[in-house]
């Protein structure tokens, strides 16, 4: 790859990061503010975002910090929320055969929901994922996310009414957009309907964060079972 291609790939990735950076902004700040409120230092809040780098699980972790829960249980909860990344890793990893091992090792660190979704969308459009594009998307999101933890931790008390600005509901809108972007893939509608029903049911009965794993597992199980009887099933 020539240096100009690398540059344009990186910029394309950076462009894809823009809506993610905007959507994640309030959550990054909110995380920093809540972290301090729940007993973490500013440094610990920043380290949390920099090392774990997984929004939803960080929120769950912080929530438990405030409730005096056993340390191993907090770690286990973070893992439970992030268990879906095993699936992302398996799905994306097999398409990164042209990456060197160190690049893969680094790339997997940045494999958050939107990073996975945009990568998958690129693959479904018949394009391959270059390391430059991938990092072009990952770096702005990461830098913004870690900075927001610091800003939120320092100035946490200053956001008085985040709800009137709609800040708390931007991520679901963003995730819906991602769900919609996959609507042309085979069997999309039943998978979405089953996942929605199962996750709501799990949310009401078992509770958060398990609704993510349970809802996804039920819908994926359906997709797995459906295969052989279907004419023209893909291999």
């Amino acid at each position: 790859m020539t240096s100009s291609t690398v540059r344009s790939e990186f910029l394309l990735g950076a462009k894809a990061s823009i809506p993610v950076v905007v959507a994640a902004l309030p959550f990054g700040l909110l995380f920093g503010a809540l972290a301090v409120e729940n007993g973490l230092s500013v440094t610990e809040a920043v380290l949390f975002s920099a090392l774990v780098y997984a929004g939803a699980s960080q929120m769950v972790g912080i929530d438990l910090f405030g409730q005096n829960v056993a340390p191993w249980l907090i770690v286990l909860s973070i893992f439970a929320v992030n268990f879906r990344h095993v699936l992302y890793s398996a799905a994306i990893g097999r398409r990164l055969g042209h990456w060197s091992t160190p690049r893969k090792a680094l790339g997997f660190f940045f494999l958050i929901d939107p990073q996975y979704a945009e990568s998958e969308r690129k693959l479904q459009n018949g394009q391959s994922i270059s390391f430059a594009w991938y990092m072009g998307m990952a770096i702005p999101i990461y830098v913004a996310w870690v900075s927001e933890a610091a800003i939120g931790a320092i100035f946490g008390g200053l956001i008085e009414d985040p709800e009137s600005l709609g800040l708390d509901f931007l991520l679901p809108i963003y995730f819906l957009g991602l769900v919609m972007s996959f609507r042309k893939s085979p069997g999309w509608l039943p998978v979405v309907v089953i996942s929605a029903a199962a996750s709501i049911l799990a949310f009401v009965t078992v509770g958060s964060p398990w609704h993510v794993s349970i809802g996804a597992a039920v819908a994926i199980l359906y997709a797995v079972i459906r295969v052989p009887g279907q004419p023209g099933a893909r291999t």
Partner: peptide, 23 residues
């Protein structure tokens, strides 16, 4: 093929769980 089908379903299956309970 079944593993393939399962992996194909991952994005819609997982991302929907981040929307549906919020809705």
């Amino acid at each position: 093929p079944r593993v393939q089908a399962g992996l194909d379903a991952v994005p819609a299956a997982v991302l929907t769980t981040l929307v549906a309970p919020a809705a």
